[in-house]
């Protein structure tokens, strides 16, 4: 008994083909427009700000922290990157946060342990390229 491929088979295959191609098309369309990141600043696990990091954004943002909000930190946003500027020596003795420098990929983050400040990218951030990674494992 030879195989008879019916008309409905062609319809089924074409439907899957079209679905796949449309999915491709949407992904290609979405790739260019979605180049947008958001960085969130946390102090003691509480969100204090959400900053937009598109290519065009270039600004500085300052926020107060500490037991009586007596300290001020400054972050700088530029060309889709963000960095923390140095804090005072007495509350941030080793300056690890500012020495981290610019972060631009979503897996990067800035952490200041003595003051419990954290700058991370949101999960909704898109368009992160990982070209300097050989592979990612979970």
């Amino acid at each position: 008994m030879t195989l008879k491929i019916k008309k409905t088979d062609y319809i089924v295959i074409t439907a899957i083909l079209v679905w796949g191609l449309v999915g491709f098309w949407f992904n290609v369309q979405g790739a260019g427009a979605a180049e947008h990141k958001y960085a969130t600043i946390y102090v003691q696990n509480e969100q204090v700000a959400e900053l937009s990091l598109s290519e065009a954004d270039s600004y500085e943002y300052s926020f107060d922290f500490g037991p009586e909000n007596e300290h001020t930190a400054l972050v700088e946003v530029e060309e889709g990157r963000i960095r923390m500027l140095p804090l005072e020596d007495d509350i941030c003795p080793r300056h690890i946060c500012s020495h981290t420098g610019w972060i631009e990929y979503t897996y990067e983050k800035i952490v200041c342990l003595p003051n419990q400040i954290m700058v991370v990218f949101n999960e909704s951030s898109r368009g992160t390229t990982r070209e300097d990674l050989d592979g990612v494992t979970y």
Binding site: L3, K4, I5, K6, D9, V12, I16
Partner: peptide
């Protein structure tokens, strides 16, 4: 349909 559809 034929088995091809089932399989695809």
């Amino acid at each position: 349909v034929s088995l091809v559809s089932v399989s695809v």
